[in-house]
Simulated assay, not measured.
Amino acid sequence: MGNIRIVALMDNQNGERKDLTAEHGLSLYIETGYTSILFDFGQGKHTYENAVRLNIRPERIDYGVCSHGHYDHGGGYREFVKNGLSCPLATGKGFFSEKYSLGKTKAACLGTGFDAAFLKENKIRHMECDGLVPLAQGCWVMGGIGRRRAFETIPKRFVLREQGTWVQDYFQDEICLILEENGELIVIVGCSHPGILNILDTVRERFSQPIRAVIGGTHLVKAGPERIAKTIAEIKGMGIRLLGFNHCSGEGFCRAMEEDGELETVYMGVGDCLFL
């Protein structure tokens, strides 16, 4: 067992801790032997309240990382800043674009509720990632995700508002966190909108170490059985041994993982911890 601890501060459902609040969203607190990171912030104040109950102090966190510009991952950021979070924030390029879900006659704003001006007002350093940015020893933020797997499609309802028109959102802003421990990699993902396999392919292109574990949302919530089966087969083919999935992974993926039996899998509900 290594020096890495990962705590789910927010997820769609609780773990054993029933005194914590669960709601649609994701937030993970991560400690390594060299740094502490808050990866995503949930959708509102409940994520901060969960952190307090778990004795996690915002003023002691070294880095904030937001995987992409959706409310259920970044909406709780203001509450953390209000209560002492002042560390640098790493995001992908285009994080502050206007993001929507578009229907036939209406659109829903999916943005985080803060902008670059908010960071400036609070004297928070903004670290924009479009490739690979080191945070600490054995810790990187990665963007610029390749798109080779054509079957990993993005729903057309996800759009950007640019100069008065709707443009498909391909989630160019999405980033992930990569940790190295004992010569192996742990990949932390938010929603995997570009495709979980596309993300893992990109990690493997940029790092020579094998991937031991993947933690976070796989966005297979609306995927069919064929895509889920193909994804699981590819993950196993990469030699990955542990999946700690949650949030947007979906019941179909969870059920398939339970039935598979070859991979070690856990669901990371609110308050659940992994020591790696």
Rank of each mutant, 00 (worst) to 15 (best):
F80D: 04
H126V: 10
Y71L: 06
L20D: 05
C254N: 11
G239F: 03
N182G: 08
M238S: 04
H126G: 11
L38C: 01
I199W: 13
G195V: 06
E262G: 05
R148W: 05
R53F: 07
V187T: 15
Q163M: 08
G252Y: 05
D11W: 12
K230F: 03
N55H: 15
P194L: 02
L200E: 03
N122R: 11
G138R: 07
G33N: 13
E180G: 00
I145M: 13
M257A: 12
G146T: 09
F158W: 11
E174S: 07
L185N: 01
T21K: 11
T218P: 09
G144H: 04
C109L: 05
V52W: 05
G190I: 00
T165K: 13
V65P: 03
V221G: 08
Q209G: 12
R17E: 15
H126P: 09
P210D: 09
E184W: 01
K236G: 13
R206Y: 08
L132W: 13
K236C: 06
P58Q: 14
F114Q: 06
V65M: 07
V221F: 10
T47G: 05
C129N: 13
N3A: 03
T35A: 11
L274G: 03
A90G: 02
N12H: 08
V141C: 11
I232E: 07
H24F: 02
V214T: 05
I37Q: 04
C66S: 12
R147M: 09
L276G: 02
L135A: 14
D201E: 15
